[in-house]
Amino acid sequence: MSSMSSFASRSMWSVDSRTIVYAAIGAALYGVLALFSVVIPGSNNVSVRPAFAIVPFFGYAFGPVVGLFTGLVGNAIVDQLSGYGLLTAWNWHIANGLVGLLAGIFAASSIARLGGSKIIGAAAVAALSVAIGMLFVFSDMVVFGNDFNTALTGSYLWVLVPDLIAGVILVPILALAWEPLKESLGR
């Protein structure tokens, strides 16, 4: 493997070939897997996108820069391919990017070691990054002229619940699957 020895010395903010490739893989995976969504029964068209878990997972596994790119570009691609438009809700791309960025930052903190367990740590990183990063959707008040209540119930809570469900369930599973691979790749 190339540059295996450089892993340990890499700063979490460095941008090299590894960062770019993992970021591009993350964004492409998000775009491809977004095909699968699950509408929550009885809700107002609220759907759970399992693919969303890719954003906090890539932040958790590869750092904040990869997480930011995965969320920002991945969400833009999903919107673009679905027909919703690249720029219709550009502020949501930033919100997704922030989730990945925060997951990367939290993964390097004591939050990732919460309860002394990788599963709990990964779930906590996912939950916190989603809850905080998605606060950016309150920018709908500026972009779409929504009032606070609409931004809270129609945007933030609307997306928080399904993304929390997807993140808390899938990020620990992906993190566990990644663990042995990480060793073999020398990370």
Binding site: V21, Y22, I25, A28, L29, V32, L33, P50, A51, A53, I54, F57, L170, I173, L174, A177, W178, L181, L185
Partner: peptide
């Protein structure tokens, strides 16, 4: 998701 993601990472 798991096999697709892990294969993609290894392939990267």
């Amino acid at each position: 998701m798991v096999p697709l993601t892990m294969n993609a990472i290894v392939g990267a």
